[in-house]
Design a binder for these strands. Structure first.
Length: 255
DNA sequence: ATGGTCGATCGTCGA
């Protein structure tokens, strides 16, 4: 089973990229973030024509998540207890008996801002939701744009980014509280290397210069970690014309 | 140098 995550930064602009990537990579599951469109204009027909099923939760202009899968995603959840947040950042669904939780984590702007506080509160509520889901489902994958670089290996210039947004101790502690529920960062099961990134800022020619962060993650429950056969980042789509600023991250399991 | 580039939308915000 091949499970991937990709922040597409507007599915309207990136639909052809997604279709091309589905055809070449043939994932069983592709979780999208930042579709930036309402459900009534979601390109369901085009995705189904490519041989996939899809569920989605979108809004105008901002956010938006979707789960594309060869098997029909079932039992979807878009709203979680106590959050009271209309933003479409969360989508849980079951695919091939694996509970998939697709997250577009709040960016947080900068430490000390209201948005940063909101990010930490949002992560706290989501952590409780994941805990509940893990109590209900045997196999859980939590993936998406976490907007957190787990440690300094995931940062091109750790000194420059020290305690900056996406790299603060508080954000990393919040991520660790999710991992402490019994989840693994699947990429780190197989790779110790620094300097492997999933996002590069559009500005300053960041991709060509390697000015990236690894903020897109595929977490799997501890029991699933034994079954991970590959975990990697496909930076090819970041080289395509008019790319998203993120590129797909992929984890493969032997069943 | 605290910049820069995108996307949605149409002046400006979010990332």
């Amino acid at each position: 089973m091949k499970i991937a995550s990709w922040n597409v930064n507007s599915l309207k602009v990136r639909l052809e990229h997604v279709l091309q990537w589905l055809e070449s990579a043939q994932p069983d599951v592709l979780a999208l973030q930042e579709t930036k469109m309402t459900d009534d204009v979601f390109p369901q027909t085009a995705i189904e024509a490519a041989g996939y099923q899809v569920v989605y939760a979108g809004q105008k202009t901002y956010n938006g998540v979707a789960i594309i899968a060869k098997d029909q995603p079932k039992d979807m959840i878009t709203d979680i207890p106590d959050l009271g947040d209309p933003q479409r950042r969360i989508l849980a669904a079951t695919v091939n008996d694996v509970r998939i939780i697709d997250l577009y984590v709040v960016n947080g702007s900068a430490p000390g801002t209201e948005k940063f506080t909101y990010k930490l509160n949002w992560l706290d509520k989501v952590t409780r939701f994941i805990e509940q889901q893990m109590a209900q489902f045997d196999d859980v994958v939590v993936l998406g744009d976490f907007n957190i670089a787990p440690d300094d290996r995931d940062v091109h210039d750790p000194d420059k980014w020290h305690e900056k947004i996406l790299c603060t101790t508080e954000e990393r502690q919040a991520l660790n509280r999710i991992l402490d529920l019994g989840l693994q960062d699947s990429f780190r099961l197989l790779h110790d290397d620094a300097g492997l990134f999933s996002w590069w800022d559009y500005r300053m020619n960041g991709f060509v210069r390697g000015l990236g962060l690894r903020i897109d993650l595929v977490l799997c429950s501890d029991e699933m970690s034994e079954a991970v056969t590959a975990a990697y980042i496909d930076d090819e789509p970041r080289k395509w014309e008019r790319p998203s600023d993120h590129t797909p991250v992929i984890t493969e399991f032997y069943w």
